[in-house]
Write a protein that binds this DNA or RNA. Sequence first.
DNA 1: CCGATATGCAACTATTTGGTTGCATGTCGA
DNA 2: TCGACATGCAACCAAATAGTTGCATATCGG
Lengths: 114, 114
Amino acid sequence: MSRKGKLSAAAVRDSAPVFAALGDETRLRLVARLCEHGPQSIARLTEGEPLTRQAITKHLRVLADAGIARDLRRGRERLWELERRRIDEARLCLDLVSREWDEALARLKAFVES
Amino acid sequence: MSRKGKLSAAAVRDSAPVFAALGDETRLRLVARLCEHGPQSIARLTEGEPLTRQAITKHLRVLADAGIARDLRRGRERLWELERRRIDEARLCLDLVSREWDEALARLKAFVES
DNA sequence: CCGATATGCAACTATTTGGTTGCATGTCGA
DNA sequence: TCGACATGCAACCAAATAGTTGCATATCGG
């Protein structure tokens, strides 16, 4: 996804899964916890959530599949941490939407007034 | 969602539905079409998509419920356009994640080295 | 070695989601 | 007024999702 380019079909294909992964309250809360307190184990991430450990595990798997998080085993526990790249891509995608929408409105206004 | 604040529970609750709405390829493509060419009717938005008009209608409804798009009737057709506010909120949410994650890593590094 | 801790795997269920088809309604234009 | 166009509504369906429970496995610490 280029900085000045249009919203390509490729950008849409790449970003949709990321948004889908972030589009669940539990998962977004997990992301918030991870980015606030750094890498954490599954057990730790489950603390305070009203769900079972297995449910949390599944959510983390979804985040991993979307390229948002990755895990590294350490002894008997598995630490999860965020992966910034995909998140930044999605952010850029929203930047583009905002900017292009503005331009479309400007064009529309100019057209109406002419 | 404040500019300098942490990722609050409220921010998570507000942004998750927006991400969920954007997390479908068809809907993200619709958003891309809307922001590129301005307000359009349902029939026009259906052109070129491999789906029925009703499917597109449902997707637009989802975007509306998430506060991303809104419709305005004009004659026998219904024009759909983007609503920037919610999209900007979601963008800010991702900004926060990126920034906080950096800070968490910096704290972690400082801790390890001490 | 043993108990406690941390996780993995599999089967099962309920709900949501994304899509369809068929038909009804409303509006534009000649 | 009449046909074509734009949309709305409802019923229905298959697949994906979010969650559970039960049990197996692996590792840490004393």
